[in-house]
């Protein structure tokens, strides 16, 4: 398990919704969404309403299953993430974002990580022509704006939740960019700390928890290896095997808040990367046709809104950051 937080389960829907804790958390979440939205609109982003279903969705990683639905006799998917549509959206606008619902039937082992929901929401951001570092700056801006707004306006809610606003001082007092550490260095850190794992892979929950606990402010892990992420994260042309991507890790054991990357946009590269991730290109017909005709280069990311809320509100479990929690493997209304 990645954190010191004890596993827990929600009560009945009325118990959960009437709880003062839930109500404070959801008020905080409102301010977070508001802060992000205002910031992005000020920066010239266009908010689009996200797609919910499609013939294909983000294949993702880490074993989460997609949900099939019948679309007039065709097998469609609920969005696990709208990454393919984000790239498509850049044909209309250069800077877009969604507040997007996603469904991922995560492996049962994630039920007690405190940070997985089968149904969750993301700020899904995509920027044409942007680099990895450009996207990271926007991600940092959003997190900082959200935390600042909650600290400024939600003092009494934080008090009800027992969340000390001073926990955010290192973040709010930061004048430059969040710290960045490469995946390779993070792995070496973990080995020094006695945590050995597969070096070609994602950082596991436990490892990420260790790194998160060490820090008092959010930080980026960048440049994950190929083989740990989906086909759309761009491989560095100068450094084969290295992806030009990033995660933002919250401190105090709260773990990953954001995943993002520069994107692959070249047709032949995408075909090769699809095969390298075990995908059957045939099912991506509409997407590949679009890519073949040309899409912009871009970078983007998704912020888990419930995860960001959990961090800001200081919650042990992410299910407390949603009105209608769906914990992996727990059959819920």
């Amino acid at each position: 398990m990645s954190s010191q937080f004890a596993p827990s389960r929600p009560g009945t829907p009325p118990e959960h919704l009437k709880s003062p804790v839930t109500q404070s958390v959801l008020r905080i979440q409102n301010q977070i969404v508001q802060a992000a939205r205002e910031l992005l609109l000020e920066q010239g982003f266009v908010e689009l309403l996200p797609p919910i279903i499609g013939p294909v969705t983000d294949p993702g990683g880490r074993g989460a299953k997609q949900v099939d639905i019948d679309f007039y006799g065709n097998r469609y998917k609920l969005m696990t993430s709208a990454i393919l549509y984000k790239q498509a959206s850049l044909l209309a606008f250069d800077k877009i974002f969604y507040v997007a619902p996603n469904v991922r039937l995560e492996p049962l082992e994630t039920a007690d990580t405190g940070r997985h929901l089968a149904e969750f929401h993301q700020f899904d951001v995509e920027i044409a022509g942007a680099s990895q570092q450009d996207a990271m700056r926007v991600a940092q801006d959003i997190v900082t704006a959200a935390v600042a707004r909650v600290v400024r306006t939600m003092g009494s809610e934080l008090e009800i939740l027992g969340r000390d606003p001073d926990a955010f001082a290192p973040l709010l007092n930061k004048t430059g960019a969040f710290e960045q550490i490469s995946h390779t260095d993070a792995m070496e850190d973990l080995v020094r700390l006695g945590h050995e794992q597969n070096h070609d892979a994602e950082i596991d929950w436990e490892g990420e928890g260790i790194l998160s606990h060490k820090s008092d402010s959010p930080f980026f892990i960048i440049d994950y290896p190929k083989g740990s992420r989906g086909f759309y994260d761009r491989e560095d042309p100068e450094r084969p095997e290295v992806l030009r991507n990033f995660d933002l890790i919250a401190p105090e054991g709260y773990g990953e808040l954001i995943s993002g990357s520069e994107r692959e946009y070249d047709y032949a590269r995408i075909i090769a990367r699809m095969r390298e991730t075990g995908e059957n290109p045939a099912k991506y017909e509409w997407y590949l046709k679009m890519v073949r005709d040309g899409i912009p280069s871009s970078s983007g990311f998704g912020i888990g809104i419930e995860r960001l809320t959990r961090y800001v509100a200081g919650l042990d479990s992410v299910w407390k950051a949603t009105a209608f929690p769906k914990i992996p493997g727990v059959v819920s209304p």
Partner: peptide, 18 residues
């Protein structure tokens, strides 16, 4: 399959299903 496709598919399996 190419050598790189096989290599990466195996790595991705190890990543996704540890």
């Amino acid at each position: 399959f190419t050598a790189e496709i096989l290599r990466q598919q195996i790595r991705f399996m190890r990543n996704n299903y540890p």
